[in-house]
Design a protein around this nucleic acid. Sequence first.
DNA 1: CGGCTTTTGTTTCCTTGGTGAACAATATCC
DNA 2: GGATATTGTTCACCAAGGAAACAAAAGCCG
Lengths: 154, 154
Amino acid sequence: MTARRKPAIIETGSLSYGMLPGLLGFHLRRAQVSLFKHFARTVGQVAGITPGLFGMLQVIAANPGLAQSRLAEAMEVERSTIVKVVDQLEARGLIVREPSAVDRRSHCLELTELGRAELARMEQLVLAHEAELAAKLTPEDRQELTRLLIQLAD
Amino acid sequence: MTARRKPAIIETGSLSYGMLPGLLGFHLRRAQVSLFKHFARTVGQVAGITPGLFGMLQVIAANPGLAQSRLAEAMEVERSTIVKVVDQLEARGLIVREPSAVDRRSHCLELTELGRAELARMEQLVLAHEAELAAKLTPEDRQELTRLLIQLAD
DNA sequence: CGGCTTTTGTTTCCTTGGTGAACAATATCC
DNA sequence: GGATATTGTTCACCAAGGAAACAAAAGCCG
């Protein structure tokens, strides 16, 4: 190697991210990591839940009697992934698998009383978390961001 | 259970997401999943790389001689996480760990010739991927989205 | 009706990123 | 020179997810 070595003295602040700042994915990921950490500090720490599990719970609550396969489609994950999620939520007493009256293969997911109570509590925390996030943007910007994200996701 | 059972007949299309559509995190996640899948189809399949690894490679390329600890800070992950990443990239012959001249504890990360060539190829694929994504938005909207994401991430 | 085909939930194994704790070697500070 | 901090590493873990195989149950079709 005959090439001259570059200085290689790089302070944390002045470090280059190459082409990354020109990519939507980079900023999308940063925003999500930031949001996720905020969720963990505010909602997660208090209610012991992750964004993913909260989302599952929301969909189950909003669609009583939902079969696991439908939930998998809604969340765009495989059926085998749903099994673990449902196991967790059931183990915590938040939901139950009830046998379907019309199809003996499928399980109807339902919230328990505890599940309803816990979800209500979580929702308050999530709304507070959302409000803190939204404070970084004007109401119009928040609306605009939502619109653009939907457009990007198709 | 004496309560009347709700119909529980829910077609995939007409299923409710509860309060999720009102949350930024929901749309952020959807957009990212969509983008990630697109990246996997276009860049990943061809160049065998993930958004995460590509990002690491970019930062290493843009900051020759970077120490692993600095990289960890830049990517906001733990040092122990970086070890595996560097192992992978080194195993593929894209980078090398060179001993630092000034600190015998630290390793200076450098791209190899192969690494530079591969990265250049990846960059072309990434730019094409980005262009396809950006096609969903007007140029102004893309700019606006970037601005809002940065603002949200702090 | 009876035989294929599909769907549903499940289990098992694997992969990907990531964490935290402990550790040896090396720097740094007082 | 001795305490303290930093660097890279290993190891054991965890969470989210996917793939494949499977049994039970539905559904289809001749």
